[in-house]
Design a protein around this nucleic acid. Structure first.
Length: 683
DNA sequence: CTAGGGTTAG
């Protein structure tokens, strides 16, 4: 509250004092309340301490004040003091104290309060039951929360809202939605808080249909311009992939808050990182950055939510320069000290291939969470620094942070990159036995990759047979890629059959298969795969690359034209000649990653005349940046092995570091080596 | 004097 209000209260206070009314308990309790509402807990406390006598209401007012001013521990102290001097808590008091226990995660004390409630047989009371419900929800005991709700004799809107949110907060959105339907059936009218919770449930379920019904209902009930309602419905549209719906809502809002903008940016960020293909990710990401700039133009200052989302967008776009600008902003505004922002920054530098700055960010963090550590391990692993990844993993264990399954994905992939089978197996066992983590497909994929990289495809196959999980499309495609490079065609064809039975969703997998059957000249299989692609409506794969230079993003599409005389083409021809002179050999096997726009024909590219998109983007980068600048390119599909090899030579010829982030991996080319150690390419 | 709600990282 503003200073003027505080001054007003103080003047009333002195007035009461002068007129001698300070003996009036009712007045003084009121004063405690008003001070608390102004955030002046010291004054509230002073009034309270000077009172000759107090009643439960006075005590409760002080506790409420502490809770509203985020000092729940003081509220509990006051409560204990009250009980010690013989005060009896009312149902209000008990509700307040349960609230304090929730925010402190003080499960023990909360349970003591619950015992007291049972002793006096007052679980049926709504204010008590509601508070118990949300206490157990915060303690992640959904069963107990529901039980508390059920025992309420006269369930009101708040009871229903509390139990619905409890379901959502504990990962059971579907049940929450059921509860909502039940609530409507019992004739309880939802209010704006209920609607916010319910649309947030629909959001996590990505239930667009249910969500738009909630939207209509909130219009009907007149809550559509309530800011939290509007924000959560807008976010729901975004998360369910309905950008137009979100945009319509956003444009129609009379008042927006920072949360509105943040939701808009976060929604786009989410779509950017989870997009099916890199092209839509690129479109979403650039749109999000535009929204971010518009927000700043409107005069609002970004906060930690804004910064984390924007940094995550910069990661997806491999937009280092923009990321650096945001970095500067986080320093200026002090938000860098937030660990979520710090971790997002670390991640941004990693995804832009700058492991040094990622490491620096990590080292400068004042506190590190499991996620920060895991990000750092992932960064080392992705940049080909396996040894450091494992060292920092051991450091993390040493400081007593318990790894989770995502940490182990990073650890195992570090082992697989470095070909450390023994250590990989040891960590796999450690994960299962010491940390009781049940392996998920990603862990298995790392293990299979580990054998495949060393050419031990039979062991990889044995591992697949021994897995508890049924192998998915990615497992088989790793095996196939390995078999291909080892010339173990029989196993490759077997794996291909397994793969086809799964009807994979990833279009690149079909190209892997096509490529394999084509080189084996198994035409029947070729047409079988093509027919399947048609039947399964596999999306067209478009080979796009883009590069961000001085805050502008330039996109390139694979070039199938045979004649072009522009600067880029000239540079590529020149590089090709010079590369050949120092040992580069054009790979002759068919490239099939380019799908012609209108046709399903597959075009074989001849590198001398036409180019995959990343070559164009790299050439453009070479022409438009200073001599020592890194080149950072984002690509919509996996690199082919010919381009991969060619770019290695380019890194020698130009003495540049070239970073290409394709749909599967990060490739950092430096003096003829790639950080993926040549196992990153699928086609 | 009281209970319930919207946006961030691996």
């Amino acid at each position: 509250m503003e200073n003027s209000s505080v001054r007003g209260v103080a003047s009333i206070h002195s007035h009461i004092f002068k007129t001698g009314f300070c003996e009036e308990l009712f007045l003084m309790t009121f004063l405690v309340n008003v001070y608390a509402k102004c955030g002046e807990m010291a004054s509230a406390r002073k009034v309270f301490d000077n009172l000759p006598k107090r009643n439960v209401v006075t005590w409760t007012s002080l506790m409420t004040g502490y809770i509203h001013n985020s000092q729940p521990e003081f509220a509990i102290d006051i409560f204990k003091e009250m009980v010690e001097v013989g005060g009896y808590p009312t149902n209000y008091t008990l509700g307040i104290i349960l609230n304090a226990c929730s925010s402190l995660f003080d499960i023990e004390f909360g349970k003591q309060i619950h015992a007291y409630i049972i002793k006096y047989d007052i679980e049926y009371d709504a204010s008590i039951g509601n508070a118990l419900c949300s206490f157990y929800s915060k303690c992640r005991c959904l069963d107990m929360a529901i039980r508390a709700f059920q025992r309420i004799e006269e369930k009101n809107v708040i009871s229903w809202t509390a139990v619905i949110s409890a379901c959502g907060d504990n990962g059971n959105s579907a049940m929450g939605l059921d509860m909502f339907v039940q609530m409507l059936a019992e004739g309880v009218e939802p209010n704006e808080v209920t609607l916010t919770s319910v649309s947030s449930l629909c959001c996590t379920m990505q239930a667009l249909d249910a969500g738009s019904q909630v939207h209509s209902l909130s219009i009907k009930l007149g809550y559509e311009s309530d800011l939290p309602v509007a924000n959560s419905i807008m976010y729901l549209y975004l998360k369910s992939g309905c950008i137009s719906g979100a945009k319509k809502l956003f444009d129609g809002m009379n008042t927006v808050s920072l949360i509105t903008w943040n939701a808009m940016i976060a929604g786009h960020a989410e779509m950017t990182s989870h997009a099916d293909d890199s092209l839509s990710a690129y479109i979403c990401g650039t749109e999000a950055l535009k929204i971010f700039h518009r927000m700043q133009k409107s005069g609002l200052k970004p906060d930690l939510y804004t910064f984390s989302s924007v940094l995550s967008i910069c990661s997806s776009l491999v937009a280092l320069e923009q990321g650096e600008q945001v970095h500067a902003q986080t320093i200026k505004t002090g938000f860098l000290s937030d660990m979520v922002v710090g971790t997002a920054l670390l991640n941004m530098y990693n995804k832009c291939g700058s492991i040094n700055r990622a490491t620096k960010t990590f080292l400068e963090m004042s506190t590190r969470t499991l996620i920060s550590w895991t990000s750092m391990i992932t960064a080392f692993a992705q940049n080909g620094h396996s040894q450091q990844a494992l060292e920092i993993f051991e450091d993390m264990r040493f400081v007593g942070i318990r790894p989770n399954k995502i940490t182990f994905v990073a650890v195992l992939s570090a082992c697989s990159q470095a070909g450390m089978v023994d250590q990989g197996l040891a960590y796999y066992e450690m994960m299962k036995n010491e940390y009781k983590i049940i392996p998920v497909m990603d862990h298995n994929a790392c293990m299979i990759d580990m054998f495949v990289r060393l050419g031990r495809v039979e062991e990889a196959f044995d591992f697949i047979k021994k897995m508890d999980l049924a192998p998915n499309e990615f497992i088989w495609s790793i095996l196939i890629a390995g078999c291909k490079s080892q010339g173990k065609l029989e196993l490759a064809f077997y794996a291909a059959e397994q793969l086809l039975e799964l009807k994979p969703k990833d279009p690149e997998i079909y190209f892997l298969l096509l490529n394999m059957y084509l080189s084996a000249e198994r035409w029947k299989d070729v047409s079988r795969v093509r027919k399947m692609m048609k039947d399964e409506k596999v999306n067209k794969v478009v080979d796009w690359s883009w590069i961000s230079i001085r805050n502008k993003v330039y996109a390139f599409k694979a070039d199938t034209k045979k004649h072009h005389n522009d600067e880029i083409a000239k540079l590529l021809v020149d590089l090709l000649d010079r590369a050949k002179a120092i040992g580069y050999k054009v790979e002759t096997n068919l490239e099939m990653t380019v799908h012609d726009e209108n046709e399903e024909a597959i075009i074989a590219l001849e590198p001398a005349h036409a180019h995959h998109s990343e070559k164009l983007a790299v050439a453009f980068g070479l022409l438009n940046t200073s001599n020592e600048a890194q080149i950072r390119v984002n690509k919509s599909i996996s690199m082919c092995s010919d381009c991969h090899n060619f770019i290695k030579f380019v890194s020698i010829l130009t003495s540049r570091t070239i970073i290409i982030r394709d749909s599967k991996k990060l490739h950092k080319f430096d003096t003829g080596q790639c950080s993926c150690k040549d196992f990153g390419n699928l086609v």
